[in-house]
Each structure stands twice: as C-alpha cells, then as structure tokens.
C-alpha cells in the first residue's frame, strides 16, 4: 500500500524538476484515482519499476508544455526526438529521485517513450494508480504512479 510520503516523493520530484530545470515550480492539481484508461497527452515517458515495488510510473505531457519547457531550458531543438528525450528524462528523474525513499531495491528501467493519446501502458495488475495533474504555467500534464 502506497503511503502518503511515498506518493509525495514522486509529486515533489516532479514539481522540483520544473523548478530546477526551468526555474519555475509546477503545482499539482487535484489528485484522483485512475479509472480505466487515462486521457494521455502527446508524449508519455514511462519507467518500469521492479524489485521492492512493481509497476510503472509515467509522465505524460502535451507538446505545447514540453516546447515551453525546452525553451526555458535554453534548448532550441523542438523536434519530435527532443520531445521524446525530454519526457523520458523527466520520468527518469522522478523515478530515480524516488530511490531516496524506496532504497536501492527500487529498480527502475531506462525510460521508454510512447506518443499519441492512446498508448498502451503496461499496467501491473493489482497495482493502485494515482493520477496527479501537474500544472505548469498555463499547461497541464499528468503524473501517474501505479505501483503494487
């Protein structure tokens, strides 16, 4: 059962990423439980988790948000590849940071990136999925934590 501090680790990791990488913190919207398939944004970075916990953690964001984020990071490459790269890096950073609380046995994969609004997310059966809307500037992304 996911504890509040654990969920908070992911949430804080995400908001902090924006603060550090783009000098402007993100805030979170109202969290809720995932029912069925979530509405996905254009790009989704997925980390598979194994070991102590199993499941997936993913960050899904619209192209517009990623574009602004790249600009804030002084990037000037706004290609499809760059978007994929960024969304994967965000997912990787959030999950990697979570090891601070989960420990070494929280094994995370190299990020994989899916695009399109109907990607097939490999949810682990029995995992509980929490959706945390991430609001940054006028944009909204989602962090989904789905762990046993």
């Amino acid at each position: 059962m996911l504890r509040e501090e654990e969920l908070k680790t992911f949430v804080d990791g995400t908001t902090q990423y924006f603060e550090v990488a783009a000098q402007q913190p993100a805030t979170i919207g109202s969290p809720y439980l995932l029912e069925g398939e979530p509405a996905m944004h254009d790009y989704t970075g997925i980390i598979s988790v194994s070991g102590k916990r199993e499941g997936v953690v993913y960050f899904t964001a619209p192209r517009a948000m990623l574009t602004v984020l790249l600009m804030k990071m002084q990037e000037n490459d706004f290609s499809h590849e760059s978007m994929r790269d960024l969304v994967g890096e965000v997912a990787n950073t959030i999950s990697g940071n979570a090891r601070r609380d989960f420990g070494h046995d929280f094994v995370i994969s190299v990020p994989s990136v899916l695009t399109g609004d109907k990607p097939d997310i490999p949810h682990k059966p029995g995992a509980r999925s929490f959706v945390i809307p991430i609001n940054w500037r006028s944009h909204s992304a989602k962090l989904v934590v789905s762990l046993t």
């Binding site: 890096e89 990697g96 979570a98 601070r100």
Partner: peptide, 25 residues
C-alpha cells in the same frame, strides 16, 4: 544521475567516481 539512493552513490564512488550530482540540477 537521478538515482538518489545511497548505495548507488557508494557503488559509484567505489568504482572510482569522484563526485555525485543529483538530477535535476
């Protein structure tokens, strides 16, 4: 690296790393 646990840092240092910076930075 984003990997924020201590065992990873120790392992990296033991292999010969000289410093550790957490992502994001």
């Amino acid at each position: 690296s984003a990997l924020a646990d201590k065992a990873t840092a120790v392992q990296a240092m033991e292999q010969g790393a000289n410093g550790f910076l957490h992502k994001p930075f």
